[in-house]
């Protein structure tokens, strides 16, 4: 895909940049820009987890722990709702794979719901759309258990 796009752009093969000199750091970051939260609610015997913000390397363990806590508390049906999710990196995808296995190992079921177009593309690029049961709406996901 990248090669095709590069070809469309004229097949440019860019040289190592001469400007790669870090003399002036004109932009600062504080490390505080960590806008993410998880909310867990119940509908019957289903734990519904809403992921708000990014699911990335810096917070993936938090999601995993929350869901493991639910499993330890006896929950066996888990629905993760991505309606308010921004983007997911490979670490976030890895945690979802890990959780799917963990839930399956205890005889439970996992559903994903409400992926926006870019997240759907991400799952398709990695073929994880074939590994998970993904529903367009939360209601459909609930009905699928």
């Amino acid at each position: 895909m990248a090669a095709e796009r590069a070809a469309r752009a004229g097949g440019a093969c860019l040289a190592v940049p001469a400007w790669f000199i870090f003399a002036n750091f004109t932009h600062t970051v504080t490390g505080a820009g960590h806008a993410m939260s998880f909310t867990i609610s119940r509908k019957g015997d289903i734990a519904i987890v809403e992921v708000e913000g990014q699911l990335i390397v810096g917070n993936r363990q938090e999601l995993k722990q929350k869901i493991v806590d639910e499993l330890d508390g006896g929950v066996r049906k888990v629905l993760i709702d991505f309606e308010r999710t921004g983007y997911i990196d490979s670490s976030g995808l890895g945690v979802l794979v890990s959780l799917a296995k963990r839930i399956r190992d205890v005889g439970g079921e996992l559903r994903l719901a409400c992926l926006h177009d870019e997240l759907q593309t991400l799952f398709e690029l990695t073929k994880l759309d074939t590994l998970f049961q993904i529903s367009k709406t939360r209601e459909h996901a609930i009905e699928s258990f």
Partner: peptide, 23 residues
């Protein structure tokens, strides 16, 4: 995307970078 890699928790980072960037 290979079947043997699909259930791995890691190993997608470089693959995604190359899928999502032109170079």
């Amino acid at each position: 995307t290979l079947p043997e890699n699909l259930v791995r928790e890691d190993g997608r980072g470089l693959y995604l970078m190359q899928q999502l960037m032109d170079e």
